[in-house]
């Protein structure tokens, strides 16, 4: 699965960096460009996403057992297709990412990941990363048997 993403500076409009106070997420990897990191291990994990032309930053998954949302950070594509999320009216969104992190391995993402957004009982929006069974390649690379659904590529 995916436990973190990093987004190159050029992927985020300058005005949004201030609005969402993203400067505290800035990391410079080696001599490379500035990137913004979003990790699941954070106290209040969030993810950036594009939905209907808007750039948003929403809570990543759900840790609250009382708001009727699945307690997870991921949504399996099989369960979505089987209708298990239907009652939550999920909307598919695009999670921009330059790199993703899984079990200690950073790997390149060409465009981004797919996710779904749902609302809890307080109408607060949460984003879940869409996942699918890992390919042999991905499983060898990360030792994880699930991988995120990526836009325009499969690892």
């Amino acid at each position: 699965m995916c436990q973190g993403i990093a987004l190159s500076q050029c992927e985020i409009p300058e005005s949004l960096i201030e609005r969402y106070e993203l400067s505290e997420r800035i990391i410079r990897r080696g001599e490379g460009n500035i990137e913004f990191r979003f990790l699941l291990a954070e106290r209040f994990p969030v993810l950036p996403l594009w939905h209907e032309g808007q750039f948003l930053i929403l809570s990543w998954g759900n840790r609250n057992r009382h708001n009727k949302l699945p307690v997870s950070a991921w949504c399996s594509q099989e369960s979505l297709e089987a209708g298990a999320w239907h009652h939550l009216r999920p909307r598919e969104v695009f999670i921009p990412a330059s790199f993703a992190w899984d079990r200690g391995v950073w790997y390149q993402v060409r465009e981004g990941l797919k996710g779904v957004v749902v609302k809890d009982c307080d109408r607060k929006q949460h984003v879940y990363v869409l996942t699918q069974p890992a390919t042999h390649y991905y499983e060898v690379m990360t030792r994880n048997n699930r991988e995120p659904v990526m836009v325009g590529e499969t690892i």
Partner: peptide, 21 residues
């Protein structure tokens, strides 16, 4: 890879083989 993905410039990058291992 850096030609088509400039965000890889200046950072430690490893290209993985046919198995991903």
């Amino acid at each position: 890879e850096r030609v088509r993905f400039p965000c890889l410039r200046g950072i430690p990058v490893g290209v993985l083989g046919n198995q991903g291992a």
